Amino acid sequence: MVNQVEPKLTSVLFEDLQNERFVTIATVDHETGGPNVSAISWVLAKDDQTIFFAVDNRSRIVQNINSNNKVVLNLIANESTYSIQGQASVKAERLEEVPLKLALIEIQISEVRDVMFYGSKIVTEPKYDKTYDKNAAARLDKQVMDAMRKA
């Protein structure tokens, strides 16, 4: 299969990004100029050309985006792996209605590329478990996702 390239999220990927999930984000490091990769989970597709995510507002991700707005979000979904390129900006320094000091980041998508290597498919998507109070984690996750939906 030839790697597909789209200018926006497909409807399947849009749906995949309606709930918290494991993704990685690559930014340009503001100190070294090299790549910086981080794992995040509070991510939401606002529409087929816009993705929101939330991170601690003191995060290196925020510093990197303020220095260079080019980002790549890596998503494993739909039996494949996707590279979502775009320009990021801090939409809000502090996400309202959330007890933590989280920045809301907006990515304007420029390209969605299926980057799975030839002749293969993902058979199990990454899963993770919260290692702190499950009830507190569930409350916080709901607060963050609801706040991003309202933004």
Rank of each mutant, 00 (worst) to 15 (best):
E79P: 00
E93V: 03
L13Q: 01
V112R: 00
K91T: 08
T81C: 05
V98Y: 00
V115T: 12
Y118M: 06
M116I: 13
P35I: 12
V2I: 07
M148K: 06
V55F: 08
T24D: 09
A137D: 12
A77H: 04
G86K: 04
S11T: 07
V72T: 14
K134D: 13
T10P: 00
Q4N: 06
I84V: 10
Y132N: 12
A45L: 02
E93Y: 02
L17M: 05
V123R: 04
P126A: 04
Q143C: 10
N57P: 04
I51M: 01
V112G: 03
Q85M: 10
A88T: 07
E20P: 15
Y118C: 03
D16F: 06
I122C: 03
A54E: 08
R21E: 00
V28M: 03
K91A: 15
V55E: 08
P126V: 01
I84W: 02
D129E: 15
I40F: 03
A92K: 13
L102A: 01
E97I: 06
Q49V: 03
D114M: 10
R58N: 11
M145L: 15
R58D: 08
V115K: 05
S80A: 15
K8V: 04
I107T: 06
Q87K: 12
Y82Q: 01
Q4G: 03
K142C: 09
V123H: 02
A147D: 07
N3S: 10
N78Q: 03
V12C: 00
S80V: 00
K127Q: 12
V144T: 08
D47I: 11
V112C: 07
V37C: 14
Q18A: 04
D56K: 09
E111T: 09
V55L: 09
S80K: 13
P7E: 05
L17N: 01
F53E: 08
A137R: 05
E96L: 11
R21F: 00
G33K: 06
V23G: 03
R139N: 15
M116C: 08
S67N: 14
N74W: 06
L44P: 11
N135G: 08
R113E: 09
D16I: 03
Q85H: 11
I61A: 05
P35V: 13
V72D: 04
L75W: 03
E97L: 09
D29G: 11
E111I: 09
L44T: 10
K46Y: 05
M148P: 11
V37E: 11
E111N: 10
L104Y: 05
M1Q: 07
F117S: 09
E96A: 15
S89V: 12
P126Q: 03
F117W: 10
L9I: 03
Q49W: 00
Y132D: 14
Q63N: 13
N57M: 05
I107A: 01
N66T: 03
T27L: 02
M1I: 01
